[in-house]
């Protein structure tokens, strides 16, 4: 029994999963602060978000969908690197289930320059738009969450997007995570 205790303790400690948030990240029921981002230079990514080609800046509320999942990540975050294939699979599942018109995804590279976000995109072949946040300004506005951090937003035209759900750490199985997102968003 004594020999098993360390193993049990380690297992229970590990179940804590990703470390707790450092500051006060966004939570369910919050409104998204006003944030502006440079529109993606790639035409396909601008089209995906429903933005005009050549549009300078945009806010997340302008994305053409009823819901938006934001992944706050960093190229330097090993948790994010490990989770990248599952997140890609989530994006693929959204497409396969014909939900793309309702639920879109963007990544927000906390403290990452355009180049650094590009390294992450290339390494993991990320198909959804990744937005740089080199000076951490968007990250600060979101309450400085640890990464990866996921925020499901309800978009409603002119009003500030509403936070429906947040998740810190790995998404686990993409299928299960998508089921949670659909339930939170009321999507069929």
């Amino acid at each position: 029994m004594k020999k098993l205790l360390p193993l049990l303790l380690l297992a229970i400690m590990c179940l804590g999963g990703a470390p707790p948030a450092a500051a006060s990240p966004l939570k369910e029921g919050d409104s998204l602060p006003a944030l502006k981002f440079a529109a993606p230079a790639q035409a396909a990514q601008a089209r995906y978000l429903g933005l005009a080609i050549g549009q300078g800046q945009f806010s997340l509320g302008q994305v053409k969908a009823s819901h938006l999942l934001v992944e706050v990540f960093s190229m330097y975050c090993t948790f994010c690197q490990v989770d990248a294939p599952q997140v890609n699979q989530l994006h693929e599942l959204i497409k396969q289930q014909d939900l793309e018109g309702k639920l879109k995804m963007v990544g927000l590279g906390a403290g990452n320059s355009e180049y650094e976000v590009g390294v992450y995109r290339k390494k993991f072949n990320v198909a959804f738009p990744l937005l740089p946040d080199a000076d951490f300004s968007a990250h600060k506005a979101l309450g400085q969450p640890r990464t990866p951090f996921f925020v499901l937003l309800k978009l409603s035209g002119q009003e500030a997007p509403q936070v429906l759900y947040t998740h810190l750490g790995s998404i686990g199985q993409a299928q299960d995570f998508l089921a949670t997102l659909k339930q939170k968003a009321g999507l069929k």
Binding site: L4, L8, L15, F79
Partner: peptide
């Protein structure tokens, strides 16, 4: 038999926990 169950439980919990901690990630703590 009790020990064996505990071992199985601990092993199962560890497997569940692996993706978060033990895949080349360094927790801030």
């Amino acid at each position: 038999r009790h020990s064996s169950r505990l071992l199985t439980l601990a092993g199962g919990l560890l497997v569940l926990a692996l993706p978060a901690w033990l895949w080349a990630a360094l927790p801030r703590e």
